[in-house]
Design a protein around this nucleic acid. Structure first.
Lengths: 341, 341
DNA sequence: CTGAAAGCGCTTACAG
DNA sequence: CTGAAAGCGCTTACAG
């Protein structure tokens, strides 16, 4: 038994295929009674539009994805979500990888040559002034992904990094920590900056001073996390918790701490950000902030489609994050979570 | 300027659209001269088939993907490659996740209900007798992915785990190691078994005995790697190298070694298998065997399409692996690689 | 070996 | 508000 077509629905609802098509595509200019009849027919026949046929007629919308740092798990998941959403919307995702600004210019040009109607720009590119300016010259709408402070005239999807970092601080406070150190992310990385500000503000609001020796530099890599952890833990009085700007660095902190004979979380609590694969692989698992990458990807595709339809009208979407509590910050007394109930 | 169609090519080559279509689809029953003319026209016009139009006429082949352990990086990459290949072949990938045997039965049923014409079965499912038997009852062809010993009547794509593990052993030998320990993978995992056999065989061929206390158990998780490393390194005479059955466990070995004050690779060389993200994140980076996941995914899709066309004719593909040498096994004297030249 | 005709399932003008 | 006709770009029979 093959799938129902628009004609099957039309017959059942006693209308023309045209009317069914109208209902499917927003249902404007259709009598309410008629629309209901059509909807009922669609439901009873389990009708689903044949995207291939639709695309054959309408042509496909092509959405470009400019990948600045391929290989990262973030990007795999993002691509996956974007592809799937494109499939559902009858759009096509075309992906180009690139490195420096020159290769980026070339990649973006290839995207436009391949008739991309819009370009998705994830980090780190969407945080680089020069990259963005270059892309704007292309005259296709762009959607910035996970940039903490997107320009108003560019569509963007992100989480609230500031609030998320505050949530993490409250999690640490609730577990009894007061002396909390912080490992910074890359200087140009806007979400990392916001996370740092949230750390500072949370400390102050809680009545504590941000001691300079409690803030270490890092560049989001495991290796830089190793160095930062060493600097932080070599001091005679150690912090009771370390908040690293991402999970790679948090994992490094755990390794260093264990190397020094410290137990995590009993002697030192550790937390990260992003919910990268390494956070779940390592033992103890890293408490972190989960970015809803799949949904961010889907939202980005939707914003892209809107941007094309509405000729570049920019829109911003802020998606909810979640705190994932793992073993690296488990409360010593086992009732930490009650603080949130 | 919109894209060239089959008619543009036909006009340029002075043939009918039908003939162009024949050339595109394999070119059988076409005069050689004619074919060349068509091919030239295709090239000069940069013609590419419009998959949407093609699918509208032919209908889409639907390939199911049964995900037994979602979240793993292996699976993201696999899915990505499979999706992309499906896009190129005008097929559609439908993904279902599942856990135990019951939920797997339900997921597979959903796949068939959604008219999957074939099902891709990655690990761990393709290593489970019960899972496979259940899937065979569905009467759709299946393709096993990364199973080390696939049944002859099932299509399969994999690497040669045995040879790959031997290559790793030769790498360690070349770096001067003789006392090499091994951390096993999950008992039911066929690739892990083969890796272990390769380890044993390589040791014997090199004239060494496999000492039982040099073989530790593990279940492919970081945590089990921690325990195995402890068991291996707590002995009075330590091995000079540890070969872990996968990268998660190798990363754990490094953490334990560093915690004991051992330098990697100077005091202890470590290697893993799979080239998982953690292998590149951690410091020192883990020397490992890279599985060509992207190509395995594409090959699996192609095998699936063949299986559907040829009514279940099974075919096996073995893809090449590569050894990725990172810091965790760097030779002390710096000229280890010369052994391979 | 080659082509004219019809059709895949949908949407785009164009009427009414 | 609704529909008849034509067409998206390709492929499937059917002829020759």
């Amino acid at each position: 038994m093959s799938a129902a077509t628009i004609y099957d629905v039309a017959r059942k609802a006693r209308v023309s295929a045209m009317t069914v098509s109208r209902v499917i595509n927003g249902g404007v200019n259709v009598d309410e009674t008629t629309r209901d009849r059509v909807k009922a027919a669609i439901a009873s026949l389990q009708y689903q539009v044949n995207q291939a046929a639709r695309s054959a007629r309408k042509g496909v919308l092509r959405i470009g994805l400019l990948l600045g740092s391929p290989g990262a798990a973030f990007m795999s998941d993002f691509q996956l979500g974007a592809m799937d959403q494109c499939g559902q919307e009858g759009a096509q995702l075309i992906v180009e990888k690139c490195g420096d600004l020159d290769s980026q210019r070339a990649a973006a040009a290839r995207l436009v040559e391949n008739s991309a109607d819009c370009i998705l720009v994830p980090p780190p590119l969407c945080d680089l002034e020069a990259s963005l300016r270059q892309l704007e010259d292309l005259c296709v709408p762009i959607v910035a992904v996970a940039s903490a402070r997107p320009a108003a005239h560019i569509s963007a999807v992100r989480i609230d990094d500031y609030q998320a970092a505050k949530t993490m601080m409250h999690h640490l406070f609730a577990a009894g920590h007061r002396d909390i150190a912080f490992i910074q992310g890359e200087p140009g990385h806007s979400p990392a900056q916001l996370r740092y500000h949230a750390y500072c503000d949370a400390m102050r609001v809680a009545g504590m001073r941000v001691r300079p020796e409690r803030v270490a530099e890092g560049v989001l890599t495991y290796r830089s996390g190793l160095a930062a952890a060493q600097a932080l833990l070599d001091q005679p009085d150690r912090p009771s918790a370390i908040f690293a700007c991402n999970d790679d660095m948090a994992a490094a902190v755990i390794a260093v701490a264990q190397g020094m004979g410290l137990r995590v979380p009993q002697d030192l609590a550790v937390c990260g950000f992003d919910d990268a694969p390494i956070a779940a692989s390592v033992w103890p698992g890293v408490t972190t902030i989960h970015q809803p990458i799949d949904e961010m990807a889907r939202a980005a595709v939707q914003l892209a489609i809107e941007a094309v339809r509405e000729r570049g009208r920019a829109r911003h979407r802020v998606l909810p994050y979640t705190l994932v509590a793992r073993e690296s910050t488990a409360a010593q007394n086992g009732n930490q979570s009650s603080a949130f109930l």
